[in-house]
Simulated assay, not measured.
Amino acid sequence: MRARLPVTLLALAVLAAAGPVASQTPLPAPPPAVDPLDSRDAKRVDRMEKVVRELRAIVFQLRDTGKPVVVQPADTDARMAEMAEKLSDLEQTLRSLNSTIDTATRDLDAARRENTTLKTQLEGLNQRLATMEQRLASTAVAAAEAEPTAAPTAPAGDPTKDFAQARQLMLAGDYDAAETAFATFVEAYPDAQRTPEANYWLGKTLSVRGAYANAAQAYIGAIRGWPQTSWAPDAVVELSRSLIALKKPADACNALAEFSRRYPKAPPTVASRAAAARTQAKCAA
């Protein structure tokens, strides 16, 4: 019998026989190398490196300057939030400013419209004042025709003496004789220096007996040219009262408006009577 070879030797023999065949079969490729750091680990490493750089800067700054170190955040989130807040405040301020400008513009437009309205009203008032004397004169003349005055007596020929005589009659309370004397003076001396004052006193005597139409005509003659005399403001007030009695409140208000404009420094008693006349005539403020 043939002797058996050991198992080990037999296996080696088999491998030797199969060697050339095995050498022709390629071995599988090794798996690709795997990066031990995934993406999250890489980000963590970047942040750590950034912190290290900041710490180094802090240490060097403290060493070089010896001053307290203010640590600034590495990210910009806080600064972006701060800038966003400031931008929001700026936008709010801008909106408030725009609102203020819009309000001022509306107020200016309203003021311009009011100014135009006032200008128109002033022009109308000036026109009414310009025609006031003509209207008052026409009213007084028409009323005078319906109620003639007493026939004047012949003057003595001396204006000074005739005026003094008429005034003395009035001071004595003889209003009828004073009325006749002043009417005679006005007719005899139409251009005398004291003729306007004679018209004033004539108007007074006519008002006493209720002859308001003739009184208004006399007062108009007294204030023609708006004299700056002691009796002139009272003559305007008496004219307005006569017009109120004649149921002509609009004309009375026009006369009182001229009183305020022509005689701003009238005596308090006269100004008080003018205010009462305005109330009675229901003049506009």
Score class of each variant (00 low, 15 high):
R2F: 07
A3N: 03
L9Q: 08
L10G: 05
A22H: 11
T25M: 13
P28T: 03
P32W: 01
A33L: 10
L37Y: 14
D38C: 03
K43G: 12
D46S: 14
V51A: 11
I58R: 11
F60K: 11
Q61P: 00
L62R: 15
L62M: 07
D64Y: 04
T65C: 08
V70M: 05
Q72T: 10
D75V: 07
R79G: 11
M80A: 13
L87M: 12
L87I: 02
D89C: 03
D89E: 14
S99Y: 14
T100Y: 15
A104Y: 12
T105I: 08
D107C: 00
N115L: 15
T116K: 01
Q121E: 10
E123S: 09
G124T: 10
N126G: 11
R128G: 06
R128A: 06
A130E: 15
L136P: 01
A137M: 05
A137H: 06
V141Q: 07
V141F: 15
P148A: 08
A150M: 05
K161G: 06
D162I: 08
F163N: 05
A164F: 06
G173A: 01
Y175K: 08
A178V: 00
A181S: 09
P190Q: 06
R194W: 12
E197P: 03
A198C: 08
W201I: 00
W201Y: 13
L202F: 03
T205S: 13
L206C: 07
G210W: 00
N214Q: 09
N214S: 08
Y219P: 00
I223K: 05
W226H: 10
Q228I: 01
Q228R: 11
Q228D: 10
W231D: 04
W231A: 02
V236A: 13
S242A: 13
S242Q: 05
I244K: 01
D251A: 05
A252C: 04
L256Y: 07
Y263L: 06
P267H: 03
P268D: 15
A271K: 03
A275C: 00
A277D: 04
T279C: 06
Q280A: 12
K282G: 05
A285C: 04
